[in-house]
Design a protein around this nucleic acid. Structure first.
Lengths: 243, 243
DNA sequence: CGCTGAAGTAGACGATTGTCTGCAAAAATA
DNA sequence: TATTTTTGCAGACAATCGTCTACTTCAGCG
């Protein structure tokens, strides 16, 4: 039986990569030409039809490939952050306060790493964002599902950080969705306007803190704990040294 | 002197409206064909060149036209809401609590009216969103400016609702930007999936409340006031009757 | 009335497009 | 090694595209 296909057929991969390069400029996969694509891939135009039924088909393959390439690194990235945060445990603080501080620490680092990742893979985000409101319903749907998947990952992280008991699952899910969605929206500007990157990082950070405070505050009734939340998440120290 | 031009030359308007109809399906103004456009407008293909230098040019005109058509109604809408809210003033409450309640009341109504407006002008939002990450840098820029304008309007409203003293201008601006951005991105789903509309309205409402709580809480230090904020904005009564 | 400039029409140019059929090379399978 | 399937190339089809030049219609204004 045809067991181990060595991956995707060589030409198929070449075409997908060519599409990735070209669609950055056209901002539409559907608008790519079969010959244009073949030219860029160094292949005969008609080879396209050996692998894909149409541009939508290629688009789905491209999305699938990119998502597979992105999701795992992003997971690893956050896991690394979580581990590096474990040894914070210091003394007799109550558990919730500890979790708050871990969340605060994880947040900032995760955001930075995420945008580093964006900087390293700009095409994926540019194309993803255009296709999210692009001409093909199937691609739009696929993108939405992919983003929902990222949001689910982030929700899982929040639970692992210990926010779950005070924040119900539904709220965690909603907050994660909002954060992921807005981070994605920011990527275009982050890529295209390097001079605004610092401001964007700060805006993302502020958004996350504001959302978390708002979501947590709604679920907490006693004043001292409320003050604690605001105190920990309310103001982030300037990015310089700790003192 | 050539004083009152009767508006835009007839053919120009026809072409813009034709583009509005066609671009809803292609989700790209640039991808429109000159002949296709002429056909839809009932004009000769070449008439296009009498009014526009290229598709980008038409796109800018289209955006300008649509924005002019949208911004004023949206302003009026919010002004109406604000006025209908004035007589709330009841007795000896402190001013801040009053403003909080007015904000809460305005929020819900504004959101509903906004999405009613989306439902009535779906093409404008569909095209705007696609072109926001579309192929033309000039159109992207124009759209971003337009959205920033809407956000500025909303920030102005927040100030008028009396949130300014406790919330600094910068935060108001940022919160407004986030809200507007997310509402715009929700419009596609609102248009395409009628069965999800109720859920989207609730999600929008929750987003606004969460953001406001988070932003306000960060600027308030005394516990009773904090509790007040959460109490007023934290949970919205079910949409049924008041009791 | 006659003029002038704008708006719209007609036809044609070369270039590019998607898709089809047929054939050659290459890889996998037996 | 022989055979079968996959992968790639070549050529041709009609259709569409953007853009140009030249001509007609029309509105406004003296």
């Amino acid at each position: 039986m045809a067991d181990h296909e060595p991956l995707i057929a060589k030409g198929k991969k070449l075409l997908i990569q060519a599409a990735l390069r070209l669609a950055v400029h056209t901002r539409s996969i559907r608008a790519l030409g079969v010959r244009e694509l073949g030219r860029e891939a160094g292949l005969n135009p008609n080879t396209f039809y050996r692998h894909f039924k149409g541009m939508d088909d290629l688009g789905l393959a491209l999305i699938e490939s990119v998502v597979a390439e992105l999701r795992q690194p992003l997971r690893d990235m956050r896991r690394t952050v979580a581990q590096s945060l474990a040894p914070i445990h210091s003394g007799e603080e109550d558990e919730f306060a500890l979790n708050l501080k871990r969340t605060r620490a994880a947040k900032k680092e995760t955001i930075k790493l995420f945008f580093d990742f964006v900087e390293a893979n700009p095409e994926a985000f540019i194309i993803g964002l255009s296709e999210l409101n692009g001409s093909s319903p199937r691609l739009r749907e696929a993108l939405r599902e992919a983003i929902a998947g990222f949001a689910a990952d982030m929700a899982e992280d929040f639970r692992l950080l210990g926010l779950t008991p005070v924040l119900d699952d539904e709220s965690v899910q909603q907050v994660s969705t909002i954060i992921i969605r807005n981070m994605f929206y920011m990527t275009t500007e982050y890529i295209e306007r390097p001079e605004r990157r610092a401001a964007l990082l700060e805006a993302a950070d502020k958004l996350v803190r504001t959302l978390l405070i708002g979501a947590l505050a709604r679920r907490v009734s006693d004043p001292p704990r409320l003050l604690q939340i605001v105190a920990v998440l309310g103001v982030d120290a300037a990015p310089q040294d700790a003192r």
